[in-house]
Write a protein that binds this DNA or RNA. Sequence first.
DNA 1: TATCTTTATTGTAATATCGCGTTACAATTT
DNA 2: AAATTGTAACGCGATATTACAATAAAGATA
Lengths: 108, 108
Amino acid sequence: MGLTKNHIFDDYQNETALITKVLGHPARVAIIQHISKNQYCNCNDLVNATGLAQPTVSQHLSEIKRIKLLKQKHQGKNTFYAIDQDILNQYRRKINDFFVKVQVNCQK
Amino acid sequence: MGLTKNHIFDDYQNETALITKVLGHPARVAIIQHISKNQYCNCNDLVNATGLAQPTVSQHLSEIKRIKLLKQKHQGKNTFYAIDQDILNQYRRKINDFFVKVQVNCQK
DNA sequence: TATCTTTATTGTAATATCGCGTTACAATTT
DNA sequence: AAATTGTAACGCGATATTACAATAAAGATA
């Protein structure tokens, strides 16, 4: 089948997986790092920074956008990307809470 | 190609991705949750808890084992699984640090 | 011994992902 | 207008992932 059965899991489990899945590729980790160090950089910067082809970077960008982690500014032919810090912080807490809850469960 | 170019990314990026990738599936999130609430449960418990077939659960378990997040005890025909809390805590800090570093970079 | 239970392995079909060449398109630049 | 630049979309080949039936293997039980 090859098709994840999302419907048999709850919202919390699906959302946790959705967020971590986006972080689950080194290119996307690298892209997020580079944008954070160069807020409002463009696609070409990321191509140079990662060494991946432009369509590949563009594809990874759209996966990161899917979870709303990026803000975009269009200026002429350029698109500038920045990290949405509110969302980032929200996800940081969510993922950390997941770990903490698991940890607490272990100790009961 | 369908082949991740790990060699063009650094150890930090690859390790961050490796950990989050394992969490990037709702079945594995569910399995980790269930083991944490039932330390030293067996595979059958997880089959019942998730609703997935036994080979599927076994496959997910081995992915979680790949990053050393599980401890196992063999007792006769049974295999009991538990969360390795040291590793869990290590990963919690690692992933949280990743988020924090990105956040700090944004604010420079 | 034969059977049942539990888990891992093998094999396979369906689907998703990764990476990139090509193309398309919009906004500049010449 | 023509060429250039930056980005997204399309399409494709290679590989990986998801899920499961069937089987194997190892221990327990009748």
